[in-house]
Computed example of a mutant assay.
Amino acid sequence: MQPRDGVRAGLPGWVPPAVRHYIEHVEGGAPIRVLARRSAVHASTVLRQVRQLESRRDDPLVDAGLKRLSQCFGSDISEENEMTHHDRHGPRPEAGGEEAEALRVLRRMAEPGAVLAVAAEMAVAAVMREAEGGAAQRLARLDRSLAETLALRGWIAARGETGRVARYRITAKGRAALRAAMPAPPPEPGFAEAQAGFAAASQGARAITNEGPLTLLARRRDRDGRPFLARELVAAGERLREDFELAQIGPRVTQDWSRYLTGGCDGGRGGGAPSGARGRLAAALSDLGPGLGDVALRCCCYLEGMEVLERRMGWSARSGKIVLRIALERLRRHYDGMSGGDMIG
Rank of each mutant, 00 (worst) to 15 (best):
G154L: 06
P93T: 11
S55L: 15
A136K: 10
P213K: 05
C265S: 13
G337C: 06
F228C: 01
G345F: 02
G237R: 07
E161W: 03
T84W: 11
A119P: 03
A200P: 10
D5S: 14
L139W: 06
P16N: 03
L47D: 12
A136V: 11
E82K: 13
S258H: 03
A157V: 12
R259C: 10
R4A: 15
A172I: 03
E24Y: 08
G340D: 09
I156Q: 00
R38G: 11
H85G: 01
F198S: 07
M83A: 15
M1Q: 07
G160I: 11
V253L: 02
L217E: 04
H334C: 05
V253N: 07
A230Y: 00
Q248D: 01
F198K: 00
R278V: 07
G65Q: 05
R269F: 00
A30T: 14
P274Y: 08
A64L: 12
R221H: 05
G90K: 06
R333N: 08
P251E: 12
N210W: 05
D222N: 15
A176I: 02
A123P: 14
R175L: 14
Q2P: 01
R311W: 00
F244E: 01
K321H: 10
F73D: 00
A100P: 01
W155S: 02
V323Q: 13
A236Q: 08
G163I: 04
V19G: 05
A135W: 00
G279Y: 05
D243G: 03
V19K: 05
R153I: 05
G341D: 12
I32Y: 09
E111G: 13
L116S: 06
G154F: 05
G28E: 01
H42S: 13
W155H: 12
R38N: 14
F198T: 08
P189R: 10
R38W: 06
K67H: 09
P186T: 09
E94T: 15
L261D: 03
R159D: 11
F244W: 12
G134H: 05
A166D: 00
D222A: 09
R223L: 15
G160F: 08
A100N: 04
I77P: 03
E80P: 00
R221F: 03
E238L: 15
A125S: 11
E130W: 00
G289Q: 04
A317K: 12
M338W: 13
R138D: 04
A117C: 13
D294V: 03
E54L: 13
R333A: 13
E304K: 05
E148S: 09
A126H: 12
R169L: 11
R312W: 02
L139R: 12
F198D: 13
G345L: 12
E27I: 13
M313R: 15
R108H: 09
Y260T: 01
V62Y: 04
A284V: 06
I32V: 15
G10H: 04
S275E: 14
R4K: 09
L281S: 04
G212K: 04
T84V: 10
V295R: 02
V105P: 01
R223A: 15
R333E: 11
L217R: 12
A192L: 10
G289C: 07
V26E: 14
R169A: 11
G271L: 10
R206N: 10
V34F: 00
A199C: 06
R88N: 09
V46N: 04
P227L: 08
G97N: 05
A123Q: 12
V253A: 15
